[in-house]
């Protein structure tokens, strides 16, 4: 009897969660797959009574679409650049933080600060640091598009001004800005995880290395990195997953045009492509792209897991 009562109660307590999940999670999974495999599916036409035939045309169209390939390329490029850079940088910072005593806590606090920020808001600050739009020297008419504090620092060290994000800027410069911002944003989480890992490492390994007179570099690559490998694998995998979903950071830097004013959409990403398709009522195309994104994330994660299985020492 008690058992039955528990059953009844359990489902009662779970009912709000289950109802919401059925509507907003389970049904979308089914429906997205359905729409992706209905050729040229459009929500408005479907509401008007149009029928669509089953097929893989959405996928074929998306993959052949130049814009999609550009979005895929941008996303993959940002991922491939930012994940290793942020992981290595976070690793060095974590190792350094772990090796000091004075100032450790305040520095740790500072390094965590970017985590608690609004991606779009701080992206706008980065945009202002790289290039002030419409700045002038002296008079209102002398508009220049490559002023900004970063350029001042570059010229201070003898370099020349770069047009980072304004009209006429190069793709490489755009990507460089994105990489800097994404790495800045990604550091806190990675430092947090890696430092946590370091603090639980057994000190005996280091004492043994010291007795053997092992060099610092060798200690780092032969002891620290292998011992931390589970955490490194974790931040790399979550980094790739997050990286393939990059979107807000581009909005933060470039605004809704997703690129410099003369080339809107140049830095569009996979997620951006899905939303564009959705806004233009191409649900079939959006669903196909979302499934492709899911597939890519799945494959990249599996590759990561496979590699880490061979390399990670538990």
């Amino acid at each position: 009897m008690v058992d039955n009562k528990q059953q009844w109660k359990a489902w009662l307590y779970l009912s709000p969660a289950i109802i919401l999940l059925l509507v907003f999670t389970v049904w979308p999974i089914i429906n997205t797959v359905r729409m992706a495999f209905l050729d040229g599916y459009k929500g408005l036409e479907a509401a008007g009574g149009a029928t669509f035939s089953f097929g893989v045309q959405n996928f074929v169209k998306v993959v052949k679409y130049q814009k999609f390939l550009q979005c895929l390329g941008n996303t993959a490029l940002m991922c491939v650049l930012t994940v290793p850079i942020s992981t290595l940088l976070a690793l060095f910072i974590a190792v350094c933080l772990n090796s000091i005593k004075a100032l450790q806590k305040p520095l740790q606090t500072i390094f965590f600060l970017p985590y608690v920020t609004n991606t779009i808001a701080i992206g706008m600050v980065f945009a202002a640091m790289f290039n002030i739009v419409g700045s002038f020297i002296g008079t209102q008419n002398e508009l220049i598009s490559n002023a900004g504090i970063i350029n001042n620092i570059i010229t201070f060290f003898g370099g020349s001004n770069v047009n980072w994000i304004n009209t006429g800027s190069s793709y490489a410069a755009n990507i460089a800005v994105m990489v800097v911002y994404i790495v800045w944003n990604a550091l806190p989480f990675k430092i947090l995880i890696l430092l946590g890992g370091l603090q639980s490492v057994n000190k005996q390994y280091y004492e043994a290395a010291k007795v053997d007179g092992t060099s610092r570099a060798r200690t780092f690559w032969r002891i620290t990195v292998p011992l931390l490998s589970p955490m490194i694998a974790y931040v790399v995998i979550t980094g790739f997953i997050g990286g393939f979903k990059e979107y807000s950071s581009v909005i933060g830097i470039f605004g809704q045009s997703m690129g410099p004013a003369n080339d809107a959409g140049r830095l569009n990403t996979m997620v951006g492509f899905i939303y564009d398709a959705l806004s233009s009522n191409n649900q079939g195309r959006a669903s196909a792209a979302a499934l492709i994104l899911f597939g890519i994330i799945l494959v990249v994660t599996l590759i990561n897991l496979y590699v880490s299985k061979k390399r990670v020492h538990y």
Partner: peptide, 28 residues
């Protein structure tokens, strides 16, 4: 609480965490 299908339900819930949110947005 003990109820039938608890473990399957819980595993099912955890599995949904792997799916990118964009996939839900289109239908939602």
């Amino acid at each position: 609480l003990q109820f039938k299908g608890k473990n399957i339900l819980f595993a099912g819930l955890l599995a949904t965490m792997m799916i990118p949110g964009e996939l839900f947005t289109i239908t939602n």
